[in-house]
Simulated scan of single mutants.
Amino acid sequence: MPAGSIAMVAGEPSGDLLASHVLSALHAAEPGLVCAGIGGARMQEQGFTAWWPTERLAVNGYAQVLPRLPELLWIRRRLRLRVLRQAPAAFVGVDAPDFNLGLERHLRSAGIPTVHLVSPSIWAWRRERLQGITLAVDHMLCVFPFEPELYKGTRVRATYIGHPLAEVIPEQPDQQAARALLGLEGTAKVLAVLPGSRAGEVAQIGPSFLGAAALLQQRHGVRVLLPVAQEGLMPALRRQLRDVPALDIQLLAGQSHLAMAACDIALVASGTATLECALFKRPMVIGYRLPALSWRMMAGKGYQPWIGLPNILAREFLVPELLQDACTPRALADEAEALLHDSQRQRHLRACFSEMHAQLRRPTASLAAQAILESARLR
């Protein structure tokens, strides 16, 4: 990497999306800036050089990490040595704290400024991470307004930059235009099914979501959209669909935002997709399952009763959350059906989601790029 370059690691598809907008702003501010490391297709579209693809890091839960641990540690070691040898002006870890924080600690101790984009959810669980963060991170970029307060009294500089999705997603999504693009005609309700972006999530959550979609289609004739986050997930989803042969479903290659814009309601795996759905002002039911071992290991570690981002931001159960054994096809379908038939509740959700959108909307990519360039002493 040439002098003045930036090393970056995005460990999952949501990080790839977040980082791609920041890369665009970085290149607008510093044309010719070289950025390289671990990234996905969206980052590469912005001129990023991927030494390894994001997909190599994507795992779901403790049970999946264990068999992959040797490979992940090998990648991190090779990456660390390469970054130390090439000495970029700064390193940016995009989410993926289990992978990035240890890497950042080594790089920072070697004199490379470290920036972490998206504060780890220490407000939700594992607050003991704060001590490790202070050893690893020079500048924490926070996407939620309550997060900088967590770093007061530490050496970590924390800046609220807003959430990039609040800029990308229109405040008034055009549902009819989205339906036209997808060839959806008629007055039938539309259900979006979003079982996650990682293979482990889809394996755990997909059968329940597809079973719920089949029940809703039987009961109400809903049209069903399933945006497939990455091509590698398609074989597993097709196998799961063989268990619900009566389900008429429209598979989409990516296009999750188009599906959210078009739908009346969504089934969403916990994660960034829940926030995306809220920004599209769509009612949703959140469902999530982990392998049994991972669930037992995480039990009791949470500091709050919610896992969905809309509920966390609202500090209340705005939308239903069905977790682990409660995440069954019938329970999901029943909750979605109740939402579909409650127009007053839908109006309340839209109003709450609009307030969230306004709060999260900032020139996020530009603020992040400015912070990165300052940390790299390129500004």
Score class of each variant (00 low, 15 high):
Ala3Phe: 02
Ser5Ala: 15
Val9Met: 09
Glu12Ser: 14
Glu12Met: 13
Glu12Thr: 13
Pro13Arg: 02
Ala19Pro: 11
His21Lys: 13
Ala28Ser: 14
Pro31Cys: 00
Gly32Arg: 04
Ile38Trp: 12
Ala41Gly: 04
Arg42Pro: 06
Arg42Tyr: 10
Glu45Ser: 15
Gly47His: 01
Trp51Gln: 14
Trp52Glu: 15
Pro53Phe: 01
Arg56Lys: 11
Val59Met: 02
Tyr62Met: 15
Pro67Glu: 10
Arg68Asn: 14
Leu69Gln: 01
Glu71Lys: 08
Glu71Val: 14
Leu72Tyr: 10
Arg85Ile: 06
Gln86Arg: 15
Gln86Met: 14
Ala87Met: 11
Ala87Ile: 04
Val92Arg: 04
Leu101Asn: 06
Arg108Leu: 07
Pro113Leu: 06
Val115Tyr: 03
Leu117Cys: 04
Ile122Gly: 02
Trp123Lys: 13
Trp123Thr: 10
Arg127Phe: 01
Ala136Pro: 04
Val137Met: 01
Asp138Glu: 13
Phe146Gly: 00
Pro148Ala: 03
Glu149Phe: 09
Leu150Val: 04
Leu150Lys: 09
Lys152Val: 09
Gly153Arg: 10
Ala158Lys: 04
Ile161Glu: 09
His163Ala: 01
Pro164Asn: 00
Leu165Val: 01
Val168Lys: 14
Ile169Thr: 10
Glu171His: 12
Gln172Leu: 14
Pro173Leu: 02
Pro173Phe: 04
Ala178Leu: 12
Ala178Lys: 03
Ala188Tyr: 12
Ala188Ile: 10
Ala192Ser: 15
Leu194Phe: 01
Gly196Tyr: 11
Glu201Val: 09
Gln204Pro: 05
Ala212Ile: 08
Leu215Phe: 04
Gln217Thr: 05
Gly221Phe: 11
Val224Gly: 02
Val224His: 01
Val224Cys: 03
Leu225Thr: 05
Gln230Trp: 04
Arg239Cys: 11
Ala246His: 14
Asp248Leu: 12
Ala261Glu: 08
Cys263Thr: 07
Cys277Trp: 07
Ile286Phe: 06
Tyr288Asn: 00
Leu290Lys: 06
Met297Ile: 15
Met298Tyr: 13
Gly302Arg: 15
Pro310Cys: 03
Glu321Phe: 08
Leu323Asp: 07
Leu323Arg: 01
Asp325Ser: 15
Thr328Asp: 02
His341Ile: 08
Gln344Leu: 14
Gln344Trp: 13
Arg345Trp: 03
Arg350Leu: 07
Phe353Lys: 03
Met356Pro: 05
Ala358Leu: 15
Leu360Phe: 08
Arg361Cys: 13
Arg362Gln: 13
Ile372Gly: 06
Leu373Asn: 04
Ala376Asn: 14
Arg377Trp: 09
Leu378Gly: 06
